[in-house]
């Protein structure tokens, strides 16, 4: 059986809110070491990869590997019944046809229990090879979100150009064009606002901006986001979840025919 108590229940709410526009149904794979999820969007352009290690939970128990087939919209609805400060406990027995969710506020004067039906999801899994990225950008997650939204007002596509001077986001549409350039920050100041660029070679790629806007809904999970690019491979957009996991998105590029 699975019994996983998440002291910071809000983390689960944020994760599910961040992926709900991309993925409708997903398998949550539970093992002794934690919970993982891998799912593609229906158009097979974007992939979500979640890792929540057992350290995120206290306690965490999973005797045998369990796959929980979850309708994300249903989970969003049930999680709306929890408070932001609630401790959330997930419980499932074998065979996993239901998932129990228990919400407890810090006061412990209220316990709410919900049970959601699970589904059989025929999920194809992709092997994501280890990639030596040519350009890795770490920047404030809020800045990334703002830039993506701003670029979306002009075009469906955004071009990201990483050089040693900085990273430039640009969009060109029927109404006009625009760009935002972030310069590489100093090495002394390493606050969340600092933009750092690790470059093997200058890299430019173009992506559908609507996916990036969706990914950036993860902003509340982490102060910083990491963008990793190697042309012509998919870009990695990563949000760390404290020291106990990550939410990664892979996005296939757009290319000139």
């Amino acid at each position: 059986m699975l019994e996983a108590r998440l002291p910071q229940g809000a983390v689960l709410k944020k994760i599910v809110d961040a992926i709900k526009e991309i993925v409708s149904d997903a398998n949550f794979d539970c093992t002794d070491s934690g919970i993982t999820l891998q799912a593609m969007d229906s158009s097979h352009v974007a992939l979500v990869s979640l890792l929540l290690t057992s350290e995120a939970f206290d306690p965490y128990r999973c005797d045998r590997n369990l796959t929980l087939g979850i309708n994300i919209k249903t989970l969003v609805q049930i999680l709306k019944c929890s408070g932001n400060d609630d401790v959330i406990t997930l419980r499932a027995e074998e065979p996993a046809d239901t998932l129990a969710l228990v919400f407890e506020p810090p006061s412990l004067e209220r316990i709410s229990e919900y049970e959601m039906k699970l589904m059989d999801i025929d999920n194809e899994r992709l092997e994501i090879p280890d990639t030596a990225y040519h350009a890795e950008i770490t920047m404030a997650a809020s800045e990334f979100q703002r830039i993506c939204r701003d670029m979306q007002t002009l075009s469906e596509s955004v071009t990201i150009e990483a050089t040693k001077e900085g990273v430039k986001f640009s969009a060109e549409g029927e109404l006009g064009s625009g760009s935002v350039t972030l310069k590489q920050g100093g090495s002394i100041d390493s606050s969340a606002e600092t933009t750092t660029i690790e470059l093997v070679q200058p890299t430019t790629q173009t992506f559908s901006v609507k996916y990036l806007v969706n990914f950036s809904k993860s902003t509340s999970l982490a102060g910083q986001v990491r963008l990793a690019m190697t042309a012509p491979l998919p870009m990695l957009v990563e949000y760390k979840i404290s020291d106990c996991g990550h939410l990664r998105f892979f996005l296939a590029p757009k290319i000139d025919d």
């Binding site: 097979h44 352009v45 194809e124 092997e127 596509s157 892979f250 290319i255």
Partner: peptide, 14 residues
């Protein structure tokens, strides 16, 4: 013409 690539062109099925 700008074409949207699919993930399957880069990642293999397990």
């Amino acid at each position: 013409v700008v074409l949207q690539c699919l993930l399957r062109g880069f990642f293999q099925n397990v």
